[in-house]
Structures are given as structure tokens and as C-alpha cells.
Simulated scan of single mutants.
Amino acid sequence: MAVMYGYARVSTNDQDLALQTQSLRDAGCEIIRAEKASGASRKGRSELQLLLDFLRPGDTLTVTRIDRLARSIKDLQDIVFALNLKGVTLKATEQPVDTRTAAGKAFLDMLGVFAEFETNLRRERQLEGIAAAKARGVYRGRKPSIDPAEVHRLYVDEKMGATAIARKLGIGRASVYRALDAYGQPA
């Protein structure tokens, strides 16, 4: 028997899933999986993966908007391809997407292109903002998590090797070598 599944996603913990889940219930979804995770890739989205693994031929996967499913055209195409192989229909409640129809498939492709375009624009704006902040001297990046002076002290004063230093400080050996190199101290 075919089942209608819903998938809801928000990007951050402070966002609410209630509107999406209610919309999916109203659309007739019997089972709804929801998660708070970035849509930039499928990595770390266990609820989506669970659905993709569980869906059977004849089932329908419903989302409120396509950008809840994927933010890149490649990811969207991969998901749609996997759904098609399984004989699963994809629908969106707020967009005319229904992979059973030619018009629905065409609209899906257009939405995927626009979602990726929006992501790329956001990334460009972020990089422009970082460049402007660096030019003003207010952006310095992430604070270093390694104290090169401590690495040097352990190497010179305590005669520890790179592996022992890495273990003691909880860092990688390559980081130890970089820190020693910064002091002009070959390891």
C-alpha cells in the first residue's frame, strides 16, 4: 500500500518546524520526519537518509518547498534520481512540483537552479562582507587553537618528539611541525 511521507527541515536550532509539519499533515502525510540541519548537502541529515532508505515503490515524498530538500542542483538531481529509481513520487505543497507530471518535473528543475543560485549569491555576499571587514581590520578569522610557544617549549625544554607533543596537546602532528617551523625549529 502506497504511503505519503513528509520531510521538514530548517537550517538552525532557533528556527521552528511547526509550520512545515502542519502543512505536511494538512497535505495528507501519514509519517513526517523532521530535522534541524543545513541543506547545503545531504551529509549529516539522518532523517532524510532514513526516508530515502525506507521509501517503497508507489510512495510519495512531500516537502513544503524544494529548498527544504536540497540547496544544490546536484544534490536535488541525485535525490530525484534515487526517488525515480524506487518509483517514488516527489511533491511540494507550496510549489507546483509533482514528478508524475511533465510540468511538475520542469518546475522542479527550475526551482533547483534558483535554489543553487540563491546559495551562490549568499556565499558571494558573505565573502564580500569578510573582505570588507578584513580591509577595515575588524576581521581576523578564527583564533588559533594551538600555542606555538608551548609546542616550542615542549620540544626544546622537555625534549619531546612531535608525536608526544601532539598527543599531549590534543593536536595533529602536522600542526606540531608547522608550529616548530614558525619558530625556525626543524623537527
Rank of each mutant, 00 (worst) to 15 (best):
M1I: 08
M4W: 06
Y5E: 09
Y7S: 08
R9Y: 15
V10M: 07
D16R: 15
A18G: 09
L24G: 07
D26G: 03
A27Y: 13
C29T: 04
R33L: 13
S38V: 15
G39N: 12
A40F: 14
A40M: 14
R45M: 13
E47K: 14
E47I: 11
D53I: 06
D53K: 12
F54D: 11
P57H: 13
D59Y: 13
D59W: 12
T62R: 13
R71M: 11
S72Q: 14
L76T: 11
Q77R: 13
D78R: 12
I79H: 04
A82H: 08
K86F: 11
L90M: 04
L90H: 07
T93W: 06
Q95R: 06
L111E: 07
A115W: 01
E118P: 07
L121S: 01
L121N: 03
R122I: 08
R122D: 03
R122S: 04
R123H: 03
L127K: 09
L127M: 05
A131G: 02
R136A: 14
R136H: 12
G137V: 06
R140K: 14
R142L: 06
A149S: 03
R153S: 00
Y155I: 00
D157H: 00
G161N: 01
G161C: 01
A166V: 01
R167Q: 07
K168A: 01
V176G: 01
A179D: 02
A179C: 02
P186G: 06
A187T: 01
